[in-house]
Simulated scan of single mutants.
Amino acid sequence: MYGAAAGDIVGSIYEIENLRSKDFPLFSAGSHFTDDTVLTAAIEEAILRWDEGDGELETLAVEELLHFFNAHPDAAYGGRFIEWARGPEQKPYGSFGNGSAMRISGAGFYAKTLEEAQQLAERVTAVTHNHPDGIRGAAAVASAILLAKTGTPKEEIRRYIDNNYYPVMFTLASIPKDYGFEAACSRSVPQALVAFFESDGFEDAIRNAISIGGDSDTIAAITGSVAEAAYGVPETIRSEVDRRLTPDIRAVFAAFGKKLDSRK
């Protein structure tokens, strides 16, 4: 969805050289989408095809992850995902990386119940990230999205995540100033969610996420996906995202939005 893409694009220029500030222009000439956006679109397309009865969700997830990887081969994927996509067989590789959480927003937005969000998250995640923490990270984000889009107060969402997934009863200010690149779900998903919990709007959530440092594009993509569910994406930000997307990704987002409207 657009929230994940917005966070990814804003964070794209700060992943290598962290900013650690909330004072920056959201978009610049170098802002671009990465694998976070590409694979978000892939999972959404798989869910759309599954909804239309086109096959088993797990099979469709593999097909679409491969399709979008091949369509966008230079989107800065993780090394193990590249090996999976280029390998002779696409088998899960035990990853607990935050790639599972960055691409999962479609499951949270499509689902109508917490149980459905968590089941969808596991099904589309385990085709690659079948480590318990890879699945946990995806399910935590999908759950937060489901709760946020149904109007659950942020503190209730926070307690739910804390009780069921990760400790999140900390503040952004308590995150060490030297917090560096952390790819594991357990060391990046909680931080991304706290950036949302401490926000007062979509843009503020993205600025919070960038201020953490670390894996900026992925943290902001995760934060943005939950922030979209709570606040929506401002049209000015959505327009900036749209003009940086390719037609195929833009088409998936549009089709997925229409599907969500039909399920209301």
Rank of each mutant, 00 (worst) to 15 (best):
F33R: 01
K91W: 08
S95H: 05
D261M: 14
T218M: 02
S105L: 11
E155K: 14
Y14P: 03
S262L: 11
G232A: 06
R86I: 01
V141D: 05
Q118E: 14
H129K: 07
D36M: 00
T37H: 02
G3Y: 02
E52L: 14
F253N: 14
D51H: 15
P190V: 07
A6M: 09
E203W: 01
V141E: 11
G106Q: 12
E52S: 15
D215V: 01
F196S: 12
K91E: 14
N208I: 10
P176H: 11
S225I: 12
F81L: 04
T236D: 10
S105F: 09
E203T: 03
I82D: 01
A221R: 05
R243M: 11
K112M: 14
S12H: 00
D248E: 15
R187L: 13
A140T: 06
F170Y: 15
Y93S: 03
P167D: 14
L48I: 14
E155F: 14
D178P: 07
Y160Q: 10
A5M: 00
T223V: 04
R244I: 02
A254I: 13
A139R: 15
E182M: 12
E235A: 12
Y231M: 09
I222W: 08
W50F: 15
R103I: 06
G151L: 10
G213T: 10
K22T: 12
A209D: 05
V10W: 00
G3K: 04
I161R: 08
V252L: 10
G106R: 14
H32V: 00
I104N: 09
S216V: 12
L245K: 13
I43S: 05
F202G: 04
E203F: 04
G137D: 06
K259I: 05
A107G: 13
A142K: 12
A220S: 10
S216R: 00
N18Y: 06
T113E: 08
V241P: 02
F197P: 04
L120K: 01
L19T: 02
I43P: 00
V194R: 05
T152W: 13
D204K: 05
F196M: 13
A111E: 02
H131C: 01
V194A: 08
G106V: 15
A46Q: 07
